[in-house]
Design a protein around this nucleic acid. Sequence first.
DNA 1: ACCTGAACACCGTTCAAGT
DNA 2: ACCTGAACACCGTTCAAGT
Lengths: 237, 237
Amino acid sequence: MQTTAPSRRERPAKPALTRDGIVAAAVSLMRQEGLEHVTMRRLAAELDTGPASLYVYLRNTAELHAAMLDELIGLVGLALDGRPELWPDSVVELLWSYTGILIEHPGLARSALVTRPAGPNYLTLVEHLLHLLHLGGIPDAQSAWGIDVLLLFATSIALEHGTRRQEADVKEDEEALVDALRQANADTYPTIAALGDALVSGTPQARFKWHVRVMLAGMALTPLPGPEARQHRKDLS
Amino acid sequence: MQTTAPSRRERPAKPALTRDGIVAAAVSLMRQEGLEHVTMRRLAAELDTGPASLYVYLRNTAELHAAMLDELIGLVGLALDGRPELWPDSVVELLWSYTGILIEHPGLARSALVTRPAGPNYLTLVEHLLHLLHLGGIPDAQSAWGIDVLLLFATSIALEHGTRRQEADVKEDEEALVDALRQANADTYPTIAALGDALVSGTPQARFKWHVRVMLAGMALTPLPGPEARQHRKDLS
DNA sequence: ACCTGAACACCGTTCAAGT
DNA sequence: ACCTGAACACCGTTCAAGT
């Protein structure tokens, strides 16, 4: 009888820890149970180790989330549409699919707001967007500043929209605002009262599309301030 | 010797709990130690009681944060400038001071993104903004949809900017992105490489101001979609 | 080197029991 | 009614000690 390490066969061979393996396990756990269950402790348990082991590969939870997000971005289709004249629609589409990923995982949207993503897949997305703006004839300098709002908008819409959907109290919450707006005393809040339902009309998608078009239209025709305001961030406060 | 409840004099008379008192104590604790220390447990300890007591007045932490934010908004100066022709500057100023509050307390910005503020002071702010847009000749329907992006932008800039400032790893983080952008291989990311430093130029204020003007310009000239897209949110998905 | 058990210092929320 | 002690079910991160 051979005695070659039978203990190693009792379980389905615990794979060696690697950064990629950890991130993949995290994404898979998130798919099954939601990001709120992807804690360092839980993830470690899933990988059959203690929480401290993860810190060999990841500095903290923020770094884990950033890595997870970049992996998800890699899955979104970034194919450019063949018809350059439809560039505004392509921008809307690209941002909407990015938002879609984040809406499914609002916790990652929160991370993306706080820690700027800088993974390879995120850079590819930025590259595509800039390319589209360039096609659209938006001056390069204005694109450079404008890309920020577009991505910030996509991220925060996802955070807002996504977090709400999963919370139970949301309906009450939403209704509280709608009620507050409707009941707004016409003396105290005349403009709000005058606008009424217009403030809350429209589907999320219709609003999203309009908002992106607003930004594109504004970007195209708003020149940057003088060079003294354009100095590098580090030179000023 | 009188025996009128001497035990009540040993401490500086514990005040009765009220919702307003709790919120005021929370704001004061936040001023002293930052929002991250305003936990239900810690706040209860400050008020000389157990955590369960707070749940008599507040449903959860989200409700506490919303109440704290509305209190802070009440402190910002919302005086309208006398010169209506300067309305775009007034909008920038109003949003910038709102952002300022949130930058000091990024945790509240996060709450405001997730739970729409609906307090009286927030409504006053919205009223002022709508009034300015009306003065500026922006069609009412477009203001009604546009106000959302303006406030969302102000909130998310604060969240982004504020959270970063207080984190220690931020410099590395920021540099990681800047480096990633600069080192971006010109073959893989030609447009990013071509724009280079323009992507990260400018002070936060200069960028903020430009971004707001972009939105105002876009809002003024982008008509809403047809009425079928404007139905009330509840009627669709 | 690489890995990890155990500890440190906390959380939000609920509920049964008190006054 | 209003209030609360104690419990439930967790966290992220560090560090000394192991292999």
